[in-house]
Design a protein around this nucleic acid. Structure first.
Lengths: 130, 130
DNA sequence: CTGAATCCCTGGGGATACTG
DNA sequence: CAGTATCCCCAGGGATTCAG
């Protein structure tokens, strides 16, 4: 989620990108945070349980993991299945919608891999000048 | 930029997604924030000056705008051209690299427009159950 | 006009302890 | 096991002012 303090006056003649109705904003808010993409990526390899996810993502706190999972579930991107074993078992997995999203995202990650070096060298060049 | 407090122990047997070398992380950090995508999008329509950008984006402070522009320039995604007029004129525009990125991103924004309704109705359904 | 410098406040998210 | 509840810290970013 992106931080917005007060959301002051937004010129009314201009498409309000903060509105829920802005699709790009909506998706970016979902995948732009520190963890969501990673979780989605791990779920591509199949159903995964909470602690399993926690371990494989690495370095995420329980609070944050459960929070991210909740919003992803709310948006219909992942399933959450509870099995009444003892102790309880919960499995997360991608919904069809979630799968199409990971495919769309792969365009960006692919771009990233392809152009990483250019970015890195651009940074070097920039830092030298400064 | 994503917030990371201390970057504790990350299991060493696991690909460190926080490392600069993780391309996805790098790009997401660049476009995942509140403004970068918007700016990139506005720049698709051609060279734009600072205040022009500020107005058309709407609601962004000068400090933040100049900050985002700086990191985008540093990563080789936008050009910054200074004309020694008086008062000074500065024009920003996409580099070829920046253009390819906006194209990659469009896969996601297109997905967003396509599936927005599904997400919205998933939210409604979820909120009813809770 | 284009920023840089300052001050301030908020909420994301880390650590830890506790439940069903 | 799978979370919830608390506390706390700090970087992002808003508002405002100053400068080349």
């Amino acid at each position: 989620m992106v931080t917005t303090r007060k959301l002051r006056e937004v010129p009314s003649d201009h498409y309000n990108v903060f509105a829920k109705e802005c699709p790009a904003r909506m998706v970016l808010d979902r995948i732009g945070d520190k963890w969501a993409l990673l979780i989605l990526d791990h779920l591509k390899s199949g159903k995964t349980r909470f602690n399993e996810l926690k371990r494989s993502v690495g370095g995420i706190s329980q609070k944050v993991l459960s929070g991210v999972l909740k919003t992803l579930e709310r948006d219909g991107l992942i399933y959450r299945e509870v099995y009444p074993t003892v102790p309880v078992t919960v499995e997360y997995s991608l919904t069809p919608l979630g799968e199409t999203l990971t495919e769309a995202i792969s365009a960006v990650t692919h771009w990233a891999e392809l152009h990483m070096k250019e970015i890195l060298s651009a940074r070097e060049a920039y830092d030298l000048k400064v």
